[in-house]
Amino acid sequence: MAVSAKKLGLDELKDKAKAIRRHIIDITTEAASGHPSSSLSATEVVTALFFGGFMKLDPKNPTAKERDRFVLSKGHAVPVLYAAMAEAGFFSVKDIMSLRKLGSVYEGHPNMARLPGIEASTGSLGQGLSFGLGQALGVRMDKIDSHVYVMTGDGEMGEGQVWEAIAAAEKYKTSNLTLIIDQNGYQQTGSTKEVLDLTAFGPKVEAFGWHVQTINGNDMGEVVKALEAARKITDRPTCIVSQTKKGFGILPVLEKEKDLNYHGKPLSKKLAEEALALLS
């Protein structure tokens, strides 16, 4: 079977995002560890990539040459990726309930050596865009029509290597490379404004010669439109600054807990029930 891109309508995409959010809560609460809030901020983008007509894939042949690739550079948000891949049929939702358990291939951060369909082993922040650039160059050398999407976190942009890759991608005009910065405003110890304020990503990346769009990344309509616009650019790499909220979809729970960062913490079984009620 050849690769193909699944294309759902806007309402169906929103439903799919809800299902993915439920899986994120379920699997991290079951694991009693993980990064649900970092996964929830990125859910619209990941859902749109897998189900909005963008990524050509074959879940039964995850290494098909003509596939598009998604590199999750902010590897701690891997629950959103496992959930999307399960919904897409790479494996089952039941499978990913073993997240983070001994012997499970659904590790705490993506491991391409153990799980086919994972496009990069990440978790040491800053390397995914370089890796994706290598992939974009590789498929271009082979004249394969394949697009590489890389998602970084906004805190991750503090890693200098990301900017090395931004510069090199401009040199090679890899229009088959799209960087999505999941700007959820928080990193491990606080808000990005407090820790290291790099927030004006748009002008910075644009100054390197990229095509840049800044959007509300938790608005599915805006996400789909931005991804469509990025695909039309043929002379340079593209960036989407995706302004999101960490924990989007279950914000009332985080507000009640008085922790809008909620970094690296699973929900308790009780809070998970409240969260799932918001996502029904």
């Binding site: 990069a120 370089s130 290598g134 160059l137 590789g138 498929v139 050398m141 200098g160 090395e164 040199k171």
Partner: peptide, 27 residues
């Protein structure tokens, strides 16, 4: 056409090589 020079940036260089290798290249 089979040579990439990323400039003075060894971190990027190595990860780019990893990405190329993941597409079937011997980087």
């Amino acid at each position: 056409n089979r040579a990439v020079n990323v400039g003075i940036a060894e971190s990027n260089m190595v990860s780019v090589a990893g990405g190329l290798a993941s597409t079937g290249k011997t980087a």
